[in-house]
Design a protein around this nucleic acid. Structure first.
Lengths: 204, 204
DNA sequence: AAAAAATACCGCCGCCTGGTGGGGTTATCA
DNA sequence: TGATAACCCCACCAGGCGGCGGTATTTTTT
């Protein structure tokens, strides 16, 4: 097998250097270059035609998501692995929709990067374990009605049942019912637990 | 001037490698080692006695904050620079309280790391520009006593005053007092607002 | 000695929690 | 087409506990 040519894209120099070092320790990989933004990345692809592009998601100007779409359009043979921190899980589906074949976290070990590269090279989907785990957690996020979302936001802002009732022109009992349904859906026993989960899921 | 001996601590191998590479490009720096956790870090300090330790904040088991406190206690001559991602700014005040002299983000450039090292080496405080900008928000984070942090965590997990009292072997009245102090310190009117702010500040 | 933290207590008001059910809309199917 | 189910929004009640205003002692820290 030929060595896999990899291009790394990230606006953080530290990550760029770290990835470069880690990739150079893998014997079947040749790093064909580094790019600090999407423009540089497109140029490097044109010049070096890498097999795989590993790109950060959140970058100024053009995001990794847009870059991925651009690559798929102009260079469909080039495979994309998306990379992010723990806190950007919500982008996973967007990346996959835009043609990314892999998804890893910046905390990935050398072994994991190796596996991701090999899997994606064979044109198969790779998801890091942590991502997969958090995907299940995402599926645990209850489906809320629009009214429930409304009430949840107001509770989070510290309003009481009565105040919320006044704002929504309904009885305080009604607000209370919504609150209770929220507690049931989130499987928590009181407001504190509710707000904590809502914050974790990015709902407030 | 002798070369500054630097130890890097981070549980993400990619950051470790990246920082190592970037530091090796600075002529007045010698990297005296890498550590993947706080235990390794303490051993390396004992062995190599570095001038400066650059440590990640959020690490499993022992956090960078605790590590910083430990270093100040056992090796007061060793200076600490804290490092985090964008999303963990709330820890800055805690780090400074625990003896860190500098604070940089993982997106720092080589030049910025250089400046941070030189400043801290002279025993002066260094804050990266991005951090400085958000410091005003950080100053709003109330200083909590250890007991208050404990109670806050338990409230966030959904326990009632009585349950918390049982866990801490104190009266429910006491727990209530702590709760009231928390509400006052956070300037909120009820538990919902308390948990929301605590979550935003990364305290729970 | 002074300040801060942790502890403990009282009483009132009302929000919060647990349980129950009615009216309206939509979807599906016999 | 009428029946049934599912879901949402709304409403009510009883009781417990939280929210909130105090006061005060003991322990620890500075």
């Amino acid at each position: 097998m030929d060595r896999i040519k990899v291009l790394v894209v990230d606006d953080h120099p530290m990550v760029l250097e770290g990835m470069q070092t880690m990739l150079s320790q893998i014997d079947f990989v040749t790093v064909s270059g580094q790019a600090g933004n999407a423009y540089q990345a497109m140029e490097m692809i044109k010049e070096h035609s890498p097999d795989i592009v590993i790109t950060d998601i959140s970058m100024p100007e053009i995001s990794g998501i847009e870059l991925s779409a651009k690559i798929r359009k102009e260079y469909p043979a080039v495979k994309v692995i998306a990379m992010s921190t723990f806190n950007e899980r919500s982008y996973i589906s967007q990346m996959v929709q835009n043609g990314a074949l892999g998804y890893i976290l910046k905390s990935a070990s050398r072994e994991e990067i190796e596996e991701a590269l090999l899997t994606v090279y064979k044109n198969r989907l790779y998801m890091s374990v942590e991502v997969e785990l958090s995907r299940q957690e995402i599926n645990k996020i209850p489906l809320l009605t629009s009214r429930e979302k409304e009430v949840l936001s107001l509770i989070a802002e510290g309003f009481t049942n009565t105040q919320i009732a006044d704002k929504l022109f309904v009885s305080a009992y009604t607000v209370d019912s919504h609150r209770k349904n929220l507690l049931t859906k989130f499987e928590v026993g009181n407001t504190a637990g509710l707000i904590k989960l809502a914050a974790r899921y990015g709902l407030i």
